[in-house]
Amino acid sequence: MSDRALAVVRAGALTTVQDLGRPGHAHLGVPRSGALDGPAADLANRLTGNPPGAAVLETTVNGCAVRPRSTVTVAVAGAPCRVTVDGRPVAWGAPVRVPAGALLDVGPAVSGLRSYVGVSGGIAVEPVLGSRSTDLLSGLGPPPLTDGTVLPLGRPTGVHARVDVAPQPAPPAELVLRVTLGPRHGWFTPEAVHTFVSRPYRVSPASNRIGLRTEGAALERARPGELPSEGMVLGAVQVPPDGRPVVFLADHPTTGGYPVIAVVRAADLAAAAQAVPGTPVRFVAVRRR
């Protein structure tokens, strides 16, 4: 392998390669996948001079550590964390030069869940159906990082941004998700629909890249049974038999049989990606634009 590569020293709890995902293949049962916090991944790329579709690393909870074989520019965005190069603190949310052979350590998230590590040139693993994203539901794309993995890097194409620290939204203390009702809110009692948009929920620790699970009041169905399988969209709020809403995130299944009570606005899903278990969640009904 050439020296355009990154050796994984500490993979962390769950670190995956992510880009814009592989939309357009849902009819084959292929999830869209892609970075959960899209704006953060985009910022990591802009800071390092990469085009928007370049692949970055998405960490979960406790970061990761990597050693580039050649000198690169990196930027860490998303969940705030301590970033060091060979033990010396460097900026989070800004371009940082990492010399060949130095150790870049992305520390545990101080708040939020997922940090994004952009590297000049981008992670250049072989794309699958046009994307380098790891899809945890279907197993497409590269497997999650393990200690010792060596990832190829692409050739840098741009010049990194000249900023000290880029402004980023703080991870949410309360997750407010704007929803439009339907298509299957008629499958729930009017009281359940009212409960859904008025009572507080909490982020469940069982959440993952497939869905943000919630804890709170169970939503009562007006009619029993399952729907014949139907297509699912990103942000769909599906209600399984336990009555607790699940918000579909990037690795969601393309079809499903549990009724979708509402759909979360796409712009609110980045915050959902950063909401730690226990975070209060409010679903707020809004009119369709």
């Binding site: 357009g24 849902a26 009819h27 139907e230 297509g231 699912m232 393309t254 079809t255």
Partner: peptide, 15 residues
């Protein structure tokens, strides 16, 4: 449409 997803009794048009 970005996605045209047929299913048992429906077709989803997304994007």
């Amino acid at each position: 449409a970005r996605e045209i997803v047929p299913a048992a009794r429906t077709v989803l048009l997304d994007g």
